[in-house]
Computed example of a mutant assay.
Amino acid sequence: MTRRNVVLQTDFGTSDGAVSAMYGVAISVEPTLRIFDLTHDIPQYNIWEASYRLYQTISYWPEETVFVSVVDPGVGTERRSIAVKTAENQYIITPDNGTLTHIKAEIGIVEARIIDETVNRLPHSGESYTFHGRDVYAYTAARLASGVITFEEVGPEVSVESVIQLQKLEPKVEEGSISGNIDILDIRFGNLWTNIDRTLFKELDVEYGDSFEVTIQNDTRQVYKNIMTYGRSFADSHLGEPLLFVNSLDKLGVAINQGSFAKAYHIETGSKWKISIRKVPKISYN
């Protein structure tokens, strides 16, 4: 019988038994399953961040890993529960509420199915409508990962185009300036991670040590504007200086050397948070 990994992501935290209950349901389906945590610290109801954390992580797992993502402000409503197969041969089980935005855009989805809860639901849980993470998603993921059901037996197929997407701005280069949005924070250190690829940034004819004017807006309100250096690593800037760099996903990042850029300037993430970067003559700090 097939044994695949199961990876869980939620906004539940670990201060109560919710995540443990999901583990228990999965192991009850198949005691030998390998279950891992992506994170349970997604900010409450933050679908955008759930979407990005999946994208940040999924490609580093073996093919046929089954991911469960439960950030579900619409639990108990008519929103769909779906399972998808990605272009990299992974599976994701989640509410259809925008959680798959980055996966669909950056990796690709090849097939989508609505979970048939008449079959794929924890027995004797039919009157519970507020914990689909346990009763539907963990249960279905365990059945799929252990080979009890095939992907086709999850439920009826729906079009990939029907999968709900959040607004996602595409980065662009115009008149010597590049613009994009702040996709996510490097939470621990407060760095900003943009959606601007290194290859697109290189269209500005950049070299390490070049100076750039960086402007950050929330909708139409400017919250930051300053000049900073493009560096290979944090060693290329002095303590407390701002820095442009390429992060672990080959995207452009913004940081303060040994400080939190996000906290210093109250920066958040998502499609409303826009960044523009323009090359300027080199500067030097004393």
Rank of each mutant, 00 (worst) to 15 (best):
Q56V: 07
P62M: 04
I27V: 13
T32Y: 09
N46Q: 12
R121F: 10
K104Q: 13
I114L: 12
Y129D: 12
R80Y: 05
T65L: 00
S146A: 12
T130M: 09
F36T: 06
A145P: 02
R143D: 01
A145L: 06
R53K: 15
G108Q: 10
A141M: 04
K104I: 07
Q56S: 14
R80A: 11
A83C: 15
D116F: 00
W61L: 11
Q44L: 14
T77G: 13
P62R: 02
Y137R: 01
G126F: 13
I58E: 05
S51I: 12
P62W: 03
T94D: 05
Y60N: 12
A50M: 06
S51T: 13
N46W: 08
I58R: 05
T99V: 15
S125M: 08
I114Y: 00
R134W: 10
E106W: 04
E117H: 02
V29R: 09
S51F: 11
R113Q: 03
P31I: 05
D135A: 07
P123S: 07
S125H: 08
E49V: 14
A145G: 03
Y129F: 15
V84H: 06
V148Y: 10
K104N: 12
I114R: 10
E127K: 14
F67E: 03
V84L: 10
W48Y: 14
D96Q: 10
S128R: 12
F131T: 04
H40D: 11
Y129G: 10
W61S: 04
G74C: 09
K104A: 14
T39I: 14
P73W: 04
T130C: 02
R80I: 07
V25Q: 04
R79D: 11
K104T: 09
P62K: 06
I103Y: 05
D72R: 11
I47N: 03
I93G: 02
T94E: 06
G126C: 02
A142V: 01
T118E: 14
Y60T: 10
Y129A: 08
T57I: 02
T94I: 06
W61Q: 07
